[in-house]
Design a binder for these strands. Structure first.
Lengths: 256, 256
DNA sequence: CATACGATG
DNA sequence: CATCCTATG
């Protein structure tokens, strides 16, 4: 396959993005794997041709709660779409798991923990279940690619206002500790791998108070790969010129 | 006072209408009494200056249910705003009652009966209570002016599709019978008084299927006056060129 | 079809 | 601030 391009984007409503014609750039981007989060729609609510091109395979995982979360995976690479119910135990439409070749590819919308303590606990338990799951697959010899909205900024350089958000879910020590653990378990934050400690690169901005124009943002959208894929990382980037959502897309190119 | 202009308009959300700048025409229209229905807002949710001019007196009656119904009255004529709780017993923000001179003026958003049988029964009971109330005032020697969204087309010429709507609340025999009774009780449908049996003049069109552009509408917004005011009717009209709501305004000019 | 709400982020 | 929900019309 050689160079393989992955895109991950939290669209905050696929129908809204479609109306804004904000998906057009994907048609020209030569994307091999497209993972969308927060589609906020059932499969039959997604407009017919949101893309000019037709992807041969698609996997839509909608939430049991209408109009909330939901993820969608589009690709031309034949593979096996798995359900991942033992991680997404509330059936909130948070995971596409797709196996192709030796790779298990995950498109994930991790829970937001800001609503209350219960949701924070759910997020942390989800984190744990997810890590156990990919570790299990890895122990079986699979390589892992994970993209999505992790809903946590890892380090101080991953958000514009670290001090002000030390008590905010999304930058809590306990959440950041899980990301440390993810990395200790052998998963690479591909953006940091390529760009080192570059600052002021974010993937989400609040709609409020013109945060995006002032670049008061957070880097909460990631591509992680298992370290056996380290030598295959060609590029990783944040596409912060793409508008249409409160998140921008992130990108990974692997030579596989 | 001489010529006195009354305007009645179901705005279907005063904030939406304000955003569309669809209230500007009122500033130039020299309106003495303005009655709005379905404002769908609390008093403090109504933008500061929806009109260029300031009315000296205003009376806002919002529903106990947020974002539903609600009526507003604007005038420079000093009078007495009454609450009319014994008619609007569910506190749905349906009536402005305003006494000035010998006149009791009512701005009313009559209930819609389409939701279910219970609401239809409520509408009919509201009709009865309202008629009893104005009859009582009349027996005390007051003249009556009633404007608003009656939510019923009186006769076949008052809607584009009478046959198709014989079983639809808004044109049911029992609803039409109440309007007959209103007239028998000595209240004049001022539009008919001025224009006779003119056809295809409506004040409401469904938003669906381009009904307004095809003039598939209903005349459900009225000005009634007690027959002692008959000789004072100067004009009555339907302002169907005013856009901004699914209803258009209706107008009455009295020489009082 | 359109305007409100409330939940969620 | 924005997207989606449901209720209401």
């Amino acid at each position: 396959m050689a160079k393989t391009t992955f895109i991950s984007w939290n669209v905050n409503g696929i129908r809204a993005v479609e109306k804004k014609a904000a998906l057009k750039w994907i048609d020209e981007a030569e994307v091999d794997f497209l993972g969308l989060q927060e589609i906020k729609a059932e499969a039959d609510q997604i407009p017919e041709s949101i893309f000019e091109r037709d992807y041969k395979f698609q996997s839509i995982n909608s939430s049991s709660k209408k109009g909330q979360s939901g993820v969608a995976l589009y690709t031309d690479v034949k593979g096996l779409a798995m359900c991942c119910e033992h991680v997404d135990i509330l059936d909130e439409g948070r995971i596409n798991e797709y196996h192709f070749g030796d790779i298990a590819y995950f498109n994930v919308y991790f829970p937001n923990g800001q609503r209350n303590e219960e949701r924070l606990a759910y997020k942390l338990a989800f984190y744990d279940r997810f890590l156990a799951h990919i570790n299990e697959l890895r122990s079986q010899g699979r390589s892992i690619v994970v993209c999505g909205d992790v809903n946590t900024a890892h380090r101080s350089i991953d958000l514009a206002r670290p001090k002000a958000n030390e008590d905010t879910s999304g930058f809590l020590p306990v959440e950041r500790a899980w990301m440390d653990r993810l990395i200790e378990n052998g998963y690479i934050d591909t953006f940091r791998h390529v760009h080192g400690d570059i600052e002021e690169r974010y993937s989400w901005w609040s709609y409020r108070a013109g945060a995006r124009s002032r670049n008061v943002g957070w880097r909460i959208d990631y591509f992680f790969v298992s370290d056996d894929l380290k030598g295959k990382i060609v590029d990783a980037d944040i596409l912060d010129d793409v508008m249409g959502s409160d998140h921008c897309p992130v990108k990974l190119v692997l030579d596989i």
